[in-house]
Design a protein around this nucleic acid. Structure first.
Lengths: 346, 346
DNA sequence: CTGAAAGCGCTTACAG
DNA sequence: CTGAAAGCGCTTACAG
């Protein structure tokens, strides 16, 4: 007779609990998952037995039997920027409150890797996914579709119909920030942009700037456009790149907080008068901005709220019950010391 | 006859692959997990069939059958500080390379919550755990022990025997930083400390400072000791608290980077001459430190390496194969503009 | 309210 | 090299 594998000797299972409590495994299972179906007496006896044996239910077995894992996968581009880190923190907290576990991966802005990570998550049996942005590998959409995997796109929000998006409308927000500069009189505006490679948010922001400028019939001059990623170092260099040009920009819009901090610091280091000679504004707000010698005007994106709502939203989809969720997060324009009217023409 | 639940209609399983490929399920399983045991011909046919059907293996079933999840749980205090965020990123990357998935939780420096999170991870069947620090809920050790759960403690390293620790020796490192101040002549030293509540690293750092000072027969005066968490705001306030005292400190040691940045900024804002009037040094190094008008002397802790090695270490334990791992990470003292000899007595 | 038993989708010891 | 079948540890439809 074939025997198969044996149980691990030391570990206790549902069976052991049932035996010791003198009930069937079905009753133990019900006592945990559906206490109302079990008489108070047994319920009490069973929970005492569980305590006594220190039984830890086996999630894999449970997942296999119920076809539900109570796990959500999230793929962020990176955790090196504070916004995604804070969002991850919030996602985990919210999921935990809803009874879910977070599986985390970082794609490093690589769509192919993201696809592989999502497939891995699917193998792990996650009930749903949180992704960042709208632009993904084409196969990813097919995959999600085929496997009917509930998912949300975070840190984006736009007018499109497809998919659930939770976050700011990057384009609209950046247009708003640019409009603010236009309103106070700027016409010669430089841009320190993030690379748009595999980053639709960065692209949307760039488009937002162009939208706002185009209405005035203005475009960003090539020498006023610099591209980087998200370090202070780059921000400093990029400031130099657009500043040492003719004509000089009277304002600089930065695609993310680190570039903006770098630009601000470089301006200070060069003794450039901010905002007297040039205004600096930023998409995204971080702590340090309100503490620099010249504080930085920024669009405040509530990353933790975005994370929290993304979590609520996937869980709502998974459980097919509507949870109250905020879908669009309109960033607040926080005007600080780094922005003002352009210098008067000499 | 009792029927039990039915299979989900749409989904394809190993069985479907086997049927279509005209082989047994055992052979399909082998073709994936042990290709060498299967003839090239079948192997080829099977992988084509898998492709064709778009089969995604069921991790829960696999985990149940093998008693291995290829998942590692990590509990960090928070992701709000850059160090843990970068470490998390590195952990995930390394685990992925080793074929594992990361389950993540944040304890918010709460030992009870951490315990609950670890138990949850155990239910999920993680193969191992990465924790931060050495100080945990007493029940946690019992739990890990009872369930023979492989685990490592990260961001700590000390002379003790028990457990695998991966990171800097906080105490020794901080003593070294303090010694540097003593060597350049400081004797009146203030401390901006992190709260030691549920944070043994903070406590170790504090002890390191005291160790170094005690050798000189010096202690930190009560008015030179301030306690906070990890915001720039707090750092500013704490600077004020220790600065407006008699005697004035000639140097300030900060328990973490954000407090140090706050202190530096407050000093600049008050027009205090750094390092002429006071030196400021920090445990932990962050980007902004090398870009402030006065750059900050700091101990550089390589968070990502700590994360990477922690990941390698647990996996090594889980697989019972020795992976090359660095256990102690000696922080590098990066001397910058904010430190120097104390002012000469007037 | 409770139990006996089938089944979730894989893996693997055994036999060939 | 391959297959038939037991088993991993739970849940749940069915019967009582």
């Amino acid at each position: 007779m074939v025997e198969g594998r044996k149980r691990h000797p030391g570990s206790v299972g549902l069976r052991d609990v049932a035996k010791l409590a003198g009930v069937s495994t079905a009753t133990v299972s019900r006592a945990i998952n559906n206490p109302d179906l079990v008489s108070p007496e047994l319920r009490q006896r069973i929970s005492a037995t569980i305590e006594q044996l220190g039984w830890v239910p086996d999630g894999a077995a449970k997942a296999l039997a119920t076809r539900r894992s109570y796990a959500i996968g999230a793929v962020f581009p990176t955790l090196a920027t504070g916004d995604f880190a804070r969002a991850t923190n919030a996602v985990q907290k919210e999921l935990q409150g809803l009874g879910y576990t977070l599986l985390l991966a970082c794609s490093e802005y690589d769509a192919v890797q993201e696809l592989a990570q999502v497939k891995k998550f699917a193998e792990r049996g996650v009930d749903g996914l949180i992704l960042v942005g709208r632009a993904h590998h084409p196969d990813l959409y097919r995959f999600l579709d085929k496997h009917r995997m509930p998912h949300v796109f975070s840190f984006v929000h736009d007018g499109q119909d497809e998919g659930v998006c939770i976050g700011p409308d990057n384009r609209k927000a950046m247009a708003g920030l640019t409009n603010y500069l236009i309103e106070v009189g700027h016409r010669t505006i430089a841009v320190l942009a993030q690379s748009v490679e595999n980053n639709d948010r960065a692209e949307a922001r760039l488009n937002g700037i162009r939208d706002a400028l185009a209405i005035q019939g203005i475009a960003v001059r090539p020498q006023h456009m610099a591209v980087g990623r998200w370090t202070i170092e780059e921000g400093r260099e990029m400031f130099g790149a657009v500043w040492d040009t003719t004509p000089r920009p009277t304002a600089i819009v930065c695609g993310n907080a680190h570039l903006a901090v770098g630009a601000m610091i470089e301006a200070l280091a060069r003794g450039v008068d901010v905002p007297g000679a040039v205004s600096i504004v930023s998409y995204d707000d971080i702590d340090i901005m309100s503490h620099l010698p010249v504080t930085v005007t920024a669009l405040r994106v509530p990353s933790d709220e975005v994370g929290r709502n993304a979590a609520r939203s996937v869980v709502g989809m998974v459980e097919q019950r509507p949870l109250p969720v905020i879908y669009e997060h309109v960033p607040e324009l926080v005007i600080r010391g780094s922005s003002g009217p352009p210098p008067r023409p000499a």
